[in-house]
Nucleic acid binder design. Structure first.
Length: 457
DNA sequence: GCTTATTTACT
DNA sequence: GTAAATAAG
């Protein structure tokens, strides 16, 4: 008669869950445990949209566990203390959990290992739960991680992934383990009105629909802003309600150029995770400095505010920023454009933008968010420091009829076609009809400031 | 075998 | 411009 604990973190599912399977194999009784980590709030990482989505996920996980005779135990507090407490109460001899990559996750794992080993218990950390290919599983000859995507992707693609694990059929939880119960989404305030629903069942339904109907058009459609033809699976990947290993297997099974392009995006996710695992400081500091002297937040306060609120006077930027606040999610092309605009055109520190995204994005993820921001800011792994995206050119390319802008910027709904991307070109009397701001900065002016600051010519 | 130049490709 | 692969020492 032995007891194991499964500590759920960013893996809120029962399908394809190596820690859960390992615990069930090792022990006759298992405690599925989630700790509402008070440290996340004090680290400034908590956000209402993710709190609400998390509540859905925990409720659904509890339901799935109950369906096979178990339940989810929820506690609050410091993770190491809470887990040690449950371990002492139940006499568990091992704790199984997924490996994480952030500095926070690495610290958490270390503290947990110390406290458990002090009690004579084991911590077992499992790979390929949060990513398909584990960080460090492939490395170049001269470094502990890849800094260029293309060679990483070649190696990543050659990795043999483990088989997908079935959901458990039966779970016995020891009697009398106290739980706080799962939180309610309804009690989270300050969420985006159009926030998606969380939970493994919702994620699996979405995945099936995506593979059946969406993925085939992904290669052609992924950058089409109004078409909205991306998978929207990012929140489920962030909370682990879907398994990246299973996604890769099933997408490869679907086949075709759309599936290949989609799998490539999943590899980008793993790429950023392996960078952060090796360089956890990159969440807060330049991966490779360009010696920027960003405009101070004080000096740029009005520009930053306009950017956050979606009133920069560049319609596609404002549309994307409003989509973010309304849905807690933004189209990937919008993320690139708004990040380029903040860091290059306004020359504001990428950390300011990354912070705002983390405050709102339901899929807000330290590895992907921080490193993609750095990628766009030119301080990351990318080797092109002077890449600047022109919001007008890009808008005409990826929103040729202006439908995306009109959807999110109703003030401009009266402007037909691509004219909506340049409202300042309307003749004076026409323009007065639209309660929409003039551009807060000239593109050429911003570009010049940026190039001067970077010493580019 | 190991270090150092050259080539290649780059969301 | 730069990282990785390859060729050369």
């Amino acid at each position: 008669m032995s007891v194991s604990i499964v500590l759920f973190t960013s893996d809120l599912r029962v399908h394809d869950h190596p820690p859960l399977r390992a615990a069930l194999r090792a022990s006759s009784e298992v405690v599925p445990l989630f700790v509402r980590d008070t440290g996340i709030a004090s680290a400034g990482y908590a956000a209402p949209n993710r709190e609400a989505f998390l509540a859905d996920c925990l409720g659904d996980l509890d339901t799935a566990l109950r369906a096979c005779g178990g339940r989810l135990v929820v506690r609050s507090g410091d993770v190491a203390d809470a887990v040690a407490g449950v371990a002492a109460e139940t006499g568990a001899d091992a704790v199984h959990m997924a490996g994480g990559v952030s500095a926070y996750a690495q610290r958490r794992e270390e503290r947990l290992r110390n406290v458990l080993e002090g009690q004579g218990r084991r911590l077992v950390v499992h790979d390929s739960v949060v990513t398909a290919v584990a960080p460090g599983a492939v490395t170049p000859a001269s470094s502990d991680h890849f800094a260029v995507f293309t060679p990483y992707f070649r190696h990543w693609s050659e990795q043999r992934l483990r088989d997908v694990l079935a959901a458990p059929r039966a779970i016995r939880v020891p009697d009398g383990v106290a739980t706080e119960g799962t939180p309610s989404r309804a009690r989270v305030s300050g969420t985006s009105p159009g926030l998606a629903a969380g939970g493994e069942r919702a994620g699996r339904k979405q995945l099936t629909a995506w593979l059946r109907r969406g993925v085939a058009g992904y290669e052609d459609g992924h950058d089409d802003l109004p078409g909205d033809a991306t998978s929207r699976l990012s929140p489920h990947l962030h909370f682990g309600t879907l398994s990246p290993v299973e996604l890769v297997h099933r997408a490869r099974g679907a086949g075709g150029p759309g599936a290949d392009a989609f799998v490539r995006q999943l590899a980008w996710r793993d790429f950023h995770h392996q960078v952060l695992a090796a360089r956890p400081a990159a969440a807060a500091h330049d991966y490779r400095t360009r010696h920027d002297r960003w405009r101070s937040e004080r000096a740029a306060a009005r520009d930053i505010e306009a950017w956050r609120e979606g009133r920069t006077g560049y319609p596609v930027i404002d549309a994307a920023m409003r989509q973010l606040s309304h849905e807690g999610w933004m189209h990937n092309r919008g993320r690139l454009l708004t990040a380029s605009f903040l860091t290059k055109t306004l020359y504001v520190d990428w950390r300011v933008g990354a912070r705002h995204f983390l405050d709102l994005l339901v899929d807000g993820d330290i590895a992907n968010n921080q490193l993609n921001w750095q990628w766009m800011a030119g301080t990351g792994t990318d080797s092109r420091p002077n890449r600047v995206l022109n919001p007008v050119t890009q808008a005409k390319r990826y929103d040729p009829d202006g439908a995306y802008v009109r959807r999110w910027v109703p003030e401009l709904a009266g402007l037909a076609g691509a004219a909506v991307h340049e409202p300042w070109k309307q003749p004076g009397p026409e323009r007065a009809k639209y309660a929409y701001p003039d551009p807060i900065v000239e593109l050429a002016e911003g570009l010049e400031r940026f190039r001067r600051a970077r010493g580019l010519d």
